[in-house]
């Protein structure tokens, strides 16, 4: 029983981390129709900036703010300078460009900050809450991650559903010509989309890092699981991203905890879950059916 609770809670926290990253992918997908493979490296870069600040005496929260701001700048600059030139071209070219960014930024981090493991602080405790006689695998930091992800999800839903900017961003992504006719400044919207997505990605990177270790490639496995979670959820839906992340996190934790030598099966399980879901619903769990044939 105790093990079940702990494995479940571990999965829950891990799932929220996938969800955080999936949210960033959903945001960028909704606003520019590009899957950004560089998201992980960009997030890692801001995490290293935050760590450098913290090590020089800044508080966690101040460093967090600077990291998020630098994430926005990084995202916007990359969109303006690099991605802008391949937007509207073959989709695969945009994918290759983000792959190139992914590799180059990661190597850049290693050159600037070195490639050793470093621990990343968290503002909250790392000791599990006491329940009865036992500590459970749920820490104040886990709670912080979950709350932060849920708030981010709520903000994104609100942005797209209730604000003019969100509407304009969606319009720019779906039909540039029409959006332009309607007076939307498409270029600015695309830049904004990348900037905001980079902020969310950077937040995900910092949440994941808290109480863990960072090194230039620390986001790599999250790119995969975050992407799988986003696709599970349907790529278009922030709620889907969170649900997809949770499903993935829990399932992988159970496989790892209960199947003998299950840790080796984690990646395969992610494949099986994704295949099963996509065979039943080729557009993901929360697909809005019309969007997919576009």
């Amino acid at each position: 029983m105790q093990q079940f609770v702990n494995v479940t809670l571990t999965g829950l926290t891990e799932g929220m981390v996938y969800a955080a990253f999936a949210l960033a992918l959903v945001l960028i997908w909704r606003s520019t129709r590009i899957v950004n493979f560089a998201q992980g490296s960009m997030a890692a870069a801001t995490a290293f900036i935050a760590l450098a600040l913290i090590q020089s005496g800044w508080s966690y929260w101040a460093a967090l703010v600077v990291a998020l701001v630098s994430g926005f700048v990084l995202g916007a600059v990359i969109e303006r300078v690099v991605v802008r030139r391949v937007e509207g071209g073959p989709e695969l070219n945009a994918v290759i460009v983000t792959l190139g960014l992914f590799v180059a930024i990661q190597a850049g981090i290693a050159i600037v900050f070195g490639s050793s493991f470093q621990s990343f602080p968290t503002p909250f405790g790392l000791q599990g809450f006491q329940v009865g006689d036992n500590r459970i695998a749920f820490t104040p930091t886990s709670l912080y991650v979950i709350v932060a992800v849920l708030i981010t999800m709520g903000l994104l839903v609100a942005l797209f559903r209730f604000t003019r900017v969100g509407l304009a961003m969606r319009a720019s992504a779906f039909g540039q010509e029409v959006a332009r006719l309607l007076g939307v400044r498409v270029g600015r919207m695309l830049t904004l989309g990348w900037g905001l997505a980079a902020v969310v990605g950077s937040l995900a990177g910092l949440l994941i890092a808290g109480g863990e270790f960072i090194y230039p490639a620390y986001m790599d496995s999250l790119i995969v699981f975050g992407f799988v979670a986003a696709v599970l959820g349907g790529l278009d839906s922030p709620i889907g991203a969170v649900v997809g992340g949770l499903i993935l996190g829990l399932a992988l934790s159970y496989v790892s905890g209960y199947v003998p030598r299950g840790s080796a099966l984690v990646n395969v399980s992610a494949l099986v879950i994704l295949m099963v879901v996509l065979l039943v619903r080729p557009g993901g769990l929360f697909a809005s059916s019309t969007a997919r044939r576009a």
Binding site: W29, E91, F227, L235, N267, L271, L274, M275, L278, G284
Partner: peptide, 17 residues
């Protein structure tokens, strides 16, 4: 599109496991 990319990405990471 991206759904195919996601599925094949999971294949790349999953199968060697």
């Amino acid at each position: 599109g991206p759904y195919l990319a996601g599925a094949t990405l999971a294949l790349a990471v999953g199968l060697p496991g």
